[in-house]
Amino acid sequence: MKYTQLGRTGLNVSRLCLGTMNFGPETEEREAFKIMDAALDAGINFFDTANVYGWGENAGRTEEIIGNWFAQGGGRRERTVLATKVNGAMPGYDGPNQKNGLSAYKIRRHLDASLKRLQTDHIELYQMHHVDTSVTWDELWEAFEVQIYNGKIGYVGSSNFAGWHIAKAQEAAKARHFLGLVTEQHKFSLMNRLPELEVLPAAQDYGLGVIAWSPLDGGILGGALNPSPGSRRTANQRERIEKLRPQLTAFSELCSDLGESEANVALAWTLTFPAMTAPIIGPRTLKQFEDTLRVTEIELTEDVLKRLDEIFPGPGGPAPQAYAW
């Protein structure tokens, strides 16, 4: 496994981040334990989750599974760089404040609840799951500062922020002599290259590490034309795959020429961007996890990158001025 620093911090994390969103809804606890053990054995130390995973009435279930895994001991917690999130509504919490959003009130309560479910006393990276423009940065930064000083979190990250949000957040943090954001978790893939225009340049300029979520675009880039037995597709997904068939066919042929799986090429592509810390891999099974381990060893040549640009066009020019003359 290869490692890099988390943004401008001194913390080293693996170039692949284990996403746990399937744990609970799709992957039962025993299989999730196997995947997490295999991740540590493979050198993946960076795990991502969120308080809402499990979804609906089962929100928090994913954190509980991770907590039960930590409780087995064996150095599991000590070897894991743990990231979770706050913003979503949690059933049974907050009374009239039970809605998506951020506040000092919510950050304190939801952090304590996450720590309890995760059976730990600290989280390395606490991420705002979405921006909340109705709250001042003074309120948010003070709330996070308190939790850092109390030792409950190490760093603060964002998710689904625009480049403008990152700039506002960092300038407000600078005025407080506070480190501010160290990461931005963003939807980014060959099928979704818009972040190249402003989000990636802003993150790189402010020293944030980018964590790519849905780097396979919901599985579309993972061999959608040749699904594995038992794969389930909605009518909308099948319609989208048919619409994208020419691109996906060209991509499949390129990957076949390279001797690599489509999923691994798509993941390796994200790692060619200087701002990228790690793409999130979200395996449902141990086999899916094992198939991704060679991603960091794949070297994409300039010719391959040029061909990928032809198949999946980006913003159209050097960012962030690609839209200008």
Rank of each mutant, 00 (worst) to 15 (best):
S256L: 12
G60L: 13
F273M: 08
I241C: 13
L221I: 03
D217T: 01
I35Y: 13
S231G: 09
F312E: 12
P315G: 14
Y3V: 05
Y93R: 11
Y53G: 13
V135K: 10
K34W: 09
F33L: 12
E184N: 15
S103C: 06
V13D: 01
Q127D: 04
G56F: 10
I44E: 02
Q98N: 13
N87T: 02
I281F: 03
T49L: 14
S159G: 05
N45T: 14
P318R: 09
D291C: 11
S261K: 15
S14E: 03
Y105V: 02
R8D: 07
I123M: 11
L267R: 06
E145L: 12
I311P: 03
D303K: 15
A266F: 09
Q72A: 11
P313G: 11
R232W: 15
G209H: 07
I148N: 00
G19Y: 13
E139V: 13
G314E: 00
R307Q: 09
F33I: 09
A263R: 13
L258G: 11
A224L: 10
L271N: 04
W213H: 15
V199F: 04
D217Y: 04
K99S: 04
G180T: 02
D138L: 08
M191A: 15
G67N: 02
P315E: 10
L200S: 01
F144E: 05
E78R: 11
D291P: 06
A169C: 04
N87E: 00
G223R: 06
F47M: 10
P91F: 08
T80Y: 05
